[in-house]
């Protein structure tokens, strides 16, 4: 096929560009402007250079929040991606049970995020919650409002319950797109179930898994509503993730300058990690036989 020489189609992208400029680029530029100034009010501002960046980079509470955030996102990826693939592999391939299992799996995705937090507060309460009461009846003390470890366990359970379905749906779509011929060839060769998974299913799922890893990383790195509702960042600071800390500065104290500097550093971290994940997944297994 000849190369497409007519570039007029680019003009069709113009409306999207205008919308993105309005909703993302101009606000981002404003954040950059805020990050180098001390904002007292409309029209009252002083240029302070890199002061907010220095303050933010030396803020030990921010360092703690960042490590917490990285641990959280790391655990999310380590649990949700393998679990999602495993569930997708066990799901039915044809018949009425396909629709049933898809809808059942997708249910948590339909619930608003702050409602999820509320559901899990009630579910895990030691006095009235089904989960909290059941655990405590077994003789284990469990209270996510008092123990940091319990708060983390609750948050991880909630996160896994809420978002593994997304990985399942993506992995399932990837699996369904593999032509039967691959499986037939594998059975003729007498390939084991593991070999089928390792050399057919996993490579064929690369595209959807790239999306799954990127989405789960970015979303878990930006998580706000669920821990805000469930633990409010506590007990102590044990579940104060980056976005919760950011909102404390920007809204709670109305320090727009430091909050803007913080936001930019936050943005750069997400940009770097997303790019690294993307490159890693795109290049994994390259050089192997196709």
């Amino acid at each position: 096929m000849d190369k497409w020489e007519d570039n007029r189609a680019w003009f069709l992208v113009l409306p999207v560009f205008v919308i993105v400029a309005f909703s993302a680029i101009i606000p981002l530029m404003t954040v950059v402007n805020y990050s180098v100034q001390d904002i007292f009010g409309p029209g009252q501002r002083v240029f302070v250079g890199t002061e907010w960046f220095e303050e933010t980079l030396h803020d030990t509470r921010l360092h703690d929040a960042l490590w917490r955030q990285l641990l959280f996102s790391g655990l999310v990826l380590l649990i949700e991606i393998p679990l999602g693939i495993a569930i997708a592999l066990t799901m039915p391939k044809k018949g009425w049970s396909v629709s049933l299992s898809l809808v059942t799996v997708a249910l948590p995705l339909l619930i608003p995020w702050n409602v999820i937090g509320t559901i899990w507060i009630v579910f895990t309460r030691p006095d009235i919650g089904l989960f909290g009461k059941a655990i405590n009846s077994l003789g284990l003390t469990f209270d996510h409002t008092a123990s940091p470890l319990d708060a983390w366990i609750t948050l991880m359970l909630m996160e896994v319950w809420h978002w593994t379905p997304l990985v399942v749906l993506l992995a399932y779509a990837g699996l369904r797109a593999i032509p039967d011929a691959y499986y037939q060839a594998a059975s003729i060769d007498g390939a084991s179930a593991w070999a089928v998974f390792r050399y057919i299913q996993l490579p064929k799922m690369r595209g959807v898994l790239t999306i799954a890893v990127l989405l789960r990383f970015m979303d878990s790195f930006l998580i706000y509503a669920e821990p805000f509702v469930l633990t409010g960042g506590g007990p102590g600071n044990s579940t104060t993730f980056l976005s919760i800390y950011l909102v404390k500065i920007a809204v709670g104290q109305f320090d727009l300058g430091p909050a803007a500097a913080f936001s930019l550093i936050y943005f750069l971290i997400i940009l770097l990690f997303s790019w690294l994940f993307y490159q890693a997944i795109q290049n994994v297994g390259k050089g192997e036989a196709p």
Binding site: M29, T30, N33, V36, Q37
Partner: peptide, 15 residues
């Protein structure tokens, strides 16, 4: 453009 709180260094940066 007052609401965007422009400064000379950031303007130079974006240009």
């Amino acid at each position: 453009l007052e609401w965007m709180a422009w400064t000379v260094p950031t303007a130079v940066f974006f240009i």
